[in-house]
């Protein structure tokens, strides 16, 4: 996997920040994705498809809106790194096949650091270091690797 830059956020990023309530009635996820993190210039001005989203503790808390991970996927997020994930966001993102990386050292990553994720290691190319990553249960890892819960169910059937 090639490297890409980190777009960083703090602790307790709630799903209202990722996509606000007023946009949830738009007809498609693509329409909604134009408003992803609309009040965060590090995202709206600098995010490119393939970049990493990096949060602190409790990333994705609040509303159960699956539109939040869905718009990040639509925009082409490579992976979401966080010290911890809120429960519903975690489940929604896994269901959509988004690569989540739970990493205790997420707070050490700076905006625009170049990151690479391979062989269950998160490598900070800018800071020339590696971070250990919290492994997910095989069941969850399998869903992510298959590209989401629907593909997982189809395969299991």
């Amino acid at each position: 996997m090639t490297s890409a830059k980190a777009i960083t956020f703090g602790d307790n990023i709630d799903t209202d920040q990722i996509i606000a309530a007023c946009h949830l009635v738009l007809p498609t996820i693509r329409d909604m994705s134009l408003y992803c993190f609309e009040h965060y210039p590090q995202f709206s001005e600098s995010f490119s498809a393939g970049d990493f989203i990096v949060g602190g503790k409790n990333f994705g808390c609040g509303s159960s809106r699956e539109q939040a991970p869905a718009v990040l996927k639509e925009r082409g997020v490579r992976a979401i790194v966080a010290q911890s994930f809120a429960r519903i966001f975690y489940r929604n993102a896994v269901n959509l096949g988004i690569r989540l990386i739970q990493c205790e050292a997420a707070g050490a990553i700076s905006l625009f650091d170049k990151l690479r994720f391979e062989d269950n290691l998160l490598i900070n190319i800018t800071k020339k270091c590696e971070y250990p990553v919290h492994p997910f249960p095989p069941f969850i890892e399998d869903i992510i690797k298959r590209g989401g819960i629907i593909a997982h169910l189809t395969h299991s059937a």
Partner: peptide
């Protein structure tokens, strides 16, 4: 329920929790 505040129903002694739209569809 596809709403995070579904946990409200514990007030009647039910176990209820919020999930996303994909889980609800399943």
């Amino acid at each position: 329920g596809a709403d995070s505040h579904t946990c409200s129903y514990g007030s009647l002694g039910a176990l209820a929790t919020g999930m996303g739209s994909t889980d609800v569809a399943i």
